[in-house]
Design a protein around this nucleic acid. Structure first.
Lengths: 227, 227
DNA sequence: TGTACATCAGTGAACGCGCGTTCACTGATGTAC
DNA sequence: TGTACATCAGTGAACGCGCGTTCACTGATGTAC
């Protein structure tokens, strides 16, 4: 028997790789529907996909692997959304109509994602990662970097407006600190807005104007109409 | 048999009300140890307290009630910590050494609480409350207001420095917006710091100086040492 | 002070359930000849 | 083109486990007389 290159066999009746996708999609749906990670069970997913429970072991060894796939996919989605928002904001005038337009667009897209996929957003950023194993096991490098991709979008948008006049008045500012402060505020707002809906939150636009104005441009509150 | 006022019977051998406390304490410990709410089970708690499982029904009808008690207790603790920090900051000079001292102290205490009780903090603010039942069921008014108590501490500290010179330069500012922006940033930092430990976070003091300076005083970045 | 009794916090056995996981299997798909 | 066979994705029955919850009970505590 000569050594033969293993060839990917054609998917059986459309299934095959599709089952994997179906499982991840079902997990995401289950998460958003129930609002709880522990509603995601092997048997529950199998039921939802319409397959027997052991069939899942062909694609995932673990229910945690499935949740990890959901999270990974969600991070891709977030990155795509931020990218699209940035492109759309920069597109029409080619130059810079207003210095903060792109930053504002990216931030708005971030908040929009968190609102559209609340449970996925919560799992992406709301789970405490205990650095299991002392100093730096680096067992899940991808997991640690996932959030960084979204941050880099934000950082890029902020950096691209550094040369603008509004930045000149803030000689001590540095881009990384700016982006960090902005991310922290965005996440805080997105998270609390979902957790404490009873709070009298302002509109997204108002909140964004406040945060960007103060954190990046050193401007005071956007004249909320108080005497 | 005449109507008799029901008198609280003396606790049996030190138990009685103590079991209830023990259950809540065990739940809090289990939450912090395992980092997961669904590690809190009736049987697990009974085991940890050293009591049979049905004994818990005498004090709680539900495992969710126990978690609610943990959260309620944690909110009390947070409020106490913020109160203490504020008092300590205002105590020595009786006047105002520096306008933002009290605000900074309250913020630092907030971050400290989130760091000392990470899982409880996560459950307090990280769980999405779906407004189940349309518009305003108001079924859990206490739950909705719990976060507001901590916010009021922050609001008070901010309000008490409004008359200071630093506020005069920001005519458009209003206290509520200030406190909201600050809370959002504090929570975002506390939450992300725990979720994404791999990120190069600054020291708490530096972060606080940045956030308070920009959000409340309109100052740029704290001269992070860049040319 | 002493005895009989009501109270009630907690027990221990038992139940049914959904879960993860295993195992031998089935049956359609694509391939060798 | 036709037949025999290897492959392998998915099946169905079965298991042991920990869970929430029920039930009749026990035994110490405090009270009535």
């Amino acid at each position: 028997v000569p050594e033969v290159e293993k060839v990917r066999r054609q998917n059986k009746r459309g299934q095959g790789l599709r089952l994997r996708e179906d499982i991840v999609a079902a997990a995401a749906a289950l998460l958003e529907e129930t609002g709880s990670e522990d509603a995601i069970t092997l048997r529950g997913l199998a039921r939802k996909v319409g397959v027997s429970a052991p069939a899942i072991y062909g694609h995932f060894g673990d229910v945690d692997e499935i949740l990890a796939a959901v999270v990974s996919e969600a991070f891709d989605e977030l990155d795509t959304a931020l990218r699209a928002a940035e492109r759309a904001a920069e597109d029409p005038s080619e130059g810079a109509a207003e210095p903060r337009t792109a930053v504002r667009a990216v931030c708005a897209a971030y908040l929009d994602f968190a609102r559209r996929r609340p449970q996925r957003y919560r799992v992406m950023f709301g789970r405490h990662r205990t650095h299991e194993g002392g100093a730096m096991t680096d067992r899940r490098p991808a997991g640690a970097l996932l959030g960084a991709a979204a941050f880099d979008r934000l950082l890029g948008a902020v950096a691209r407006t550094t040369g603008h006049p509004s930045a000149a008045s803030r000689p001590g500012a540095d881009t990384f600190t700016d982006a960090t402060a902005l991310w922290v505020a965005l996440h805080g707002y997105a998270s609390l807005r979902a957790s404490v809906p009873a709070f009298p939150w302002p509109e997204d636009d108002t909140m964004l104007e406040t945060l960007i104005g103060r954190l990046l441009d050193g401007k005071p509150s956007p004249a909320a109409g108080r005497p």
